[in-house]
């Protein structure tokens, strides 16, 4: 049975989420289906792209490198972002709003430009090495660029806000009376953090870390500019297949593999949560 209220709800939903839904189906859904189609060689159906990948050392190397780099970048982002979120949570709302603009400011610059900036900072004759050379009095050339270190630094630089915001949201949701109550009962600030702040902000950390990780998996520009030959990530491999070997099926298959892995991670996380709840 459809009541007038239900009809009204449906109309409301159609108006509010309809446009975005159509847009997403158009620019994500349909291309994704097309990539799926291409990965099986289109009209001449074949598994060859997947067979090629599974027998390619380069693919597994990049896959491993992608996960390793993403995990490192996520961990670094959480370590850097969490204290910032704590600091923001302690400010007055006005000050916090101002500081949040500062947190978002890096987004005003293209990631391409920022990555180039890192080559200036991290290079052999970059800012850091020059400063160190000046300090110690002889030439220092630490290998800071074109390696995993540079990639992780560059990625974390971009990703930290994705940790800060969800963590801040869960910190602000904690009743400040909890800390006051614990302090009055005699708790040291360290205990308050360990037993109250940290566990209650964990949902924000998990949300921030998972979105950071998923964004990391698809990074292209940063490893391309700051990484070395061994730091090829899957997105770079896709680029290689589409531009160098013109093997679109293989490139599409890489995309599908990455999507399948992320999907699997999501299912595993959801199951884990259900098991823990029960």
């Amino acid at each position: 049975m459809t009541t007038p209220a239900m009809t009204r709800d449906r109309t409301g939903a159609l108006c509010t989420i309809g446009p975005a839904a159509v847009f997403m189906v158009g620019i994500v859904g349909i291309p994704l289906l097309y990539i799926f189609y291409v990965s099986f060689n289109g009209l001449h159906f074949s598994f060859y792209a997947y067979v090629t990948l599974l027998s390619s050392r380069l693919f597994f190397q990049s896959l491993w490198s992608t996960f390793e780099t993403s995990i490192l970048a996520t961990v670094l982002s959480v370590l850097l972002g969490y204290p910032v979120a704590i600091h923001l949570a302690r400010q007055s709302p006005r000050r916090r709003a101002l500081m949040m603009i500062l947190v978002l400011m890096p987004f005003w610059t293209s990631i391409l430009v920022k990555s180039y900036a890192f080559t200036i900072i991290l290079g052999r004759r970059g800012l850091i090495n020059s400063a160190l050379s000046y300090l110690v009095g002889h030439k220092v050339a630490l290998p800071l660029l074109f390696n995993k270190f540079a990639v992780v630094i560059g990625m974390a630089n971009y990703l930290v806000p994705f940790v800060i915001f969800p963590v801040l949201a869960s910190l602000l949701a904690i009743d400040p009376a909890l800390g006051r109550a614990a302090t009055l009962m005699g708790a040291h600030p360290l205990r308050v953090f360990r037993q109250i702040t940290l566990p209650l902000s964990l949902p924000g950390v998990i949300a921030g870390a998972s979105s950071t990780f998923i964004i990391s998996l698809g990074f292209f520009v940063v490893p391309a500019l700051l990484g070395g030959r061994h730091d090829v990530m899957l997105a770079n491999l896709v680029d290689f297949y589409t531009r160098e070997t013109l093997d679109w099926s293989a490139a599409a298959a890489i995309g599908m593999c990455l999507l399948a892995i992320i999907g699997l991670c999501g299912v595993m996380a959801a199951t884990l949560r259900k098991v823990r709840r029960a």
């Binding site: 009743d175 109550a181 302090t183 009055l184 009962m185 005699g186 708790a187 040291h188």
Partner: peptide, 12 residues
């Protein structure tokens, strides 16, 4: 506060 040895009951 933590060394004053007080007890407190809160509204919320």
């Amino acid at each position: 506060a933590r060394e004053r040895g007080l007890g407190m009951v809160f509204q919320n």
